[in-house]
């Protein structure tokens, strides 16, 4: 075990993939000479050269489409979209092309493409730069969507994504990059599609993902002080969704709160809550509660932004409302 930042863990996996597999190359805006908008790819162009680490024009559609074509031809592109907000300019290539080729060619073609991007708010970047849009991608059959919350998962899930023969979108959270955690030594792969109980408890289940997993853990500590023992489930992968793990937890604790940073309306939490309600209705002692981002475009002002994003206090309140 070694201590690593989330950013460093991602970089370690990219480096390792570039070393191990000639077919792997990175492509994105400002990822080379500049080192990446969030510094994830720092130093990789110097180490691996411009064939393997490519600075692309600010043209998200061709950036993703170029990755799709290269993946079809047998390469293993890892494309960075600077922010999930910019992925909207590549929606056609992601949804109509990457997610469809395998199906519409009846398996003649597959697209082993990884898209890394940054989601979420908290940086006073206002409404166009603070959205959590991963649910839109998780809606689409043919895509996989992963959202690692810890350095260890970032390391292992990115490695799994690069090995995966399907298009995988990895959503990272900008506020997680400097966070440190224990990471197993050497290469390791964390399978996609497996949620994880990150805190065991018996009174209530809190289901969450990405940065909100850390917020949920903080809430669980608060609750523990009052004698409430919360279990926290980190979804880790949004598609394919591991319903079994969180349904089993809810069956055990008989209560569930679902937490997400993004908008609640048609949100990921709705999918999780309905899964729990339909699979474990008879075992629940209370309706499934939800905590989500306020249903507003993200305001710029720091206090307003803070109020729009769920925090531990809101999770604590939601848990208490069930008891």
């Amino acid at each position: 075990m070694a201590e690593m930042t989330y950013r460093g863990a991602l970089r370690a996996t990219l480096r390792e993939a570039l070393q191990q597999d000639e077919r792997v190359f990175l492509m994105g805006e400002d990822i080379g000479a500049y080192g990446g908008a969030y510094g994830v790819t720092q130093g990789l162009m110097a180490e691996f050269g411009e064939k393997r680490v490519k600075d692309s024009p600010i043209a998200e559609s061709v950036l993703v489409g170029c990755g799709v074509g290269a993946a079809m031809a047998g390469l293993r592109p890892v494309v960075e979209i600077m922010s999930i907000n910019f992925s909207l300019l590549a929606f056609d290539q992601i949804v109509n092309v990457a997610a469809k080729l395998q199906y519409m060619s009846a398996g003649q073609i597959n697209v082993p493409l990884v898209i890394r991007t940054v989601t979420g708010g908290g940086n006073m970047l206002a409404a166009t730069h603070s959205q959590s849009l991963e649910g839109w991608f998780a809606h689409v059959p043919g895509l996989k969507v992963a959202a690692p919350a810890t350095p260890a998962d970032a390391r292992g899930m990115l490695a799994a994504a690069i090995r995966d023969p399907n298009p995988v979108i990895i959503v990272e959270h900008s506020l997680l990059y400097p966070i440190k955690g224990e990471v197993p030594d050497g290469p390791h792969v964390t399978p996609l599609g497996k949620a994880k109980v990150v805190r065991a408890g018996k009174d209530v289940t809190i289901v969450s993902y990405l940065r909100m997993t850390l917020t949920a853990l903080a809430a669980a500590e608060e609750l523990a002080k009052e004698g409430i023992d919360a279990e926290v489930v980190d979804l880790r992968t949004l598609r394919p969704l591991d319903r079994e793990t969180f349904v089993a937890s809810a069956r055990k604790t008989h209560r569930a709160v679902v937490v997400e940073e993004g908008w609640g309306t048609y949100g990921i939490g709705a999918e999780v809550a309905s899964s729990i309600a339909s699979a474990a209705f008879d075992e629940l002692d209370a309706p499934v509660a939800r905590v989500s981002g306020e249903d507003v475009p993200m305001p710029y002002n720091k206090e307003l932004e803070r109020a729009a994003i769920p925090d531990a206090a809101r999770i604590v309140a939601a848990v208490k409302s069930l008891l």
């Binding site: 489409g65 170029c66 074509g69 390469l75």
Partner: peptide, 11 residues
């Protein structure tokens, strides 16, 4: 069109 660039890149 974007896909074609990727096939070209792979070549």
């Amino acid at each position: 069109m974007p896909v074609a660039t990727g096939l070209g890149l792979a070549s």
